[in-house]
Design a protein around this nucleic acid. Structure first.
Lengths: 209, 209
DNA sequence: TTTATAAATGAATGAACATTCATTTATATT
DNA sequence: AATATAAATGAATGTTCATTCATTTATAAA
């Protein structure tokens, strides 16, 4: 869809990338505000300032649009999470980087978070569960494995580890965002760092051998 | 809506309660399977074996239907959670009862869980956030307060306590259900009790002073 | 400047949508 | 058995939906 079909194409009108961007942004906004119910192609076209037919140049159909949005948001989030993360770091340091990266991204991109949560419990989520970044999963596994070897982390089934290590963070961020509305104010992140550190300490205490 | 408008009404045809039940059940099933997008009043009528107009006898409109479903599921869940729960019990006992009740309900009613998760991140959730059972909230608060007084639980902001005490459980149940599909098999609950106890122990360790 | 090409469009299409309404049906009381 | 009442209905209404298509527009290369 997003690739040029003919490699040797020349003498053609160029794509206006700002149009695709507008479509993507308004689509996420509409989904967050009105749900999947509220995403109408005609209203989206109007909101993005393009013709309905233009959307179908960039996306195969409505489902493809939603899928592409999801893939792009996932990628943004994975990139944000891995920033400054070293799988060989100590468990405490590594987990702290993870927590801060995740929290920062979600709080600075509340629409992203809301959109992804909505996708997560919708039928769209089934379409491509398997398309997760394998490098990402590998790094997470390596990090936990290292920490166990160094006796900084109890050996546990993966599901148990994950639910203790990260679920509290997501819960915290969710209540934070729904409490403050959808418009990010980065300074709030600083204020809540205390609560986050408090929770992180409890989690580390739980997971230490 | 669900009340008789005229108290002295007599000499009338009686309501067929099985019709309302069929509408409610099929509606939740449709939402779980196809999302809010997929809930069409005409298709719902056909699935429930009634006329489209019949739905409007029991519910004001589509939004009211969804709201009523949500209220009913919430009530079912709150009742299940409070079963055998004593807010004066020790922290460990009380939390274990909470965990088991919640897990049991969610695993035995995966459609309920899926529906409520979908609602949670949809615009419908905003409609009546405040309608939560106040007795329920009161009991939860009392329980935590008791535990702190007895020095069985560290004193923490409520959000921190909640995210550590319950978020791991929900995460565990969610992965369990999405792993096994939507059709409940009660014996699986027994098998996973080990994982749950493992996680619960970690949580209690984290929250002990 | 001409030309070939894909981008971009507005209007059109038929399907599906939520909701309503005139009518029929079942039933508890008389 | 007759009656009054609300339950229940099928068909109809007007709207909005996703998608398509014939046409126009912009641009990179010639």
């Amino acid at each position: 869809m997003n690739e040029h079909s003919f490699i040797f194409a020349s003498e053609m009108r160029t794509r206006d990338e700002s149009k695709e961007l507008a479509i993507r942004q308004k689509a996420i906004q509409m989904i967050v505000e009105k749900g999947f119910d509220g995403l109408s192609m005609q209203k989206l076209a109007k909101a993005a300032g393009v013709s309905p037919a233009t959307i179908y140049i960039y996306f195969k159909d409505r489902d493809d649009l939603i899928l592409q949005l999801w893939i792009a948001e996932m990628k943004k989030m994975v990139d944000a999470i891995l920033k400054n993360f070293d799988p060989n770091a100590s468990f405490e340091d590594g987990l702290r980087v993870q927590w801060m990266n995740r929290a920062k991204f979600l709080i600075e991109n509340p629409m992203s978070m809301h959109f992804m949560e909505q996708i997560k419990y919708s039928p769209y989520h089934n379409v491509s569960l398997t398309k997760m970044d394998s490098n990402f999963i590998e790094m997470m596994g390596k990090f936990a494995h290292n920490a166990i070897k160094r006796k900084e982390l109890v050996k546990l089934p993966f599901d148990v580890y994950w639910s203790v290590a990260f679920a509290p963070l997501y819960q915290l961020v969710k209540t934070h965002i729904s409490g403050k509305g959808l418009h990010s104010s980065p300074e709030k992140f600083v204020l809540d760092e205390k609560m986050m550190n408090m929770t992180l300490k409890l989690v580390i205490k739980a997971l230490r051998p």
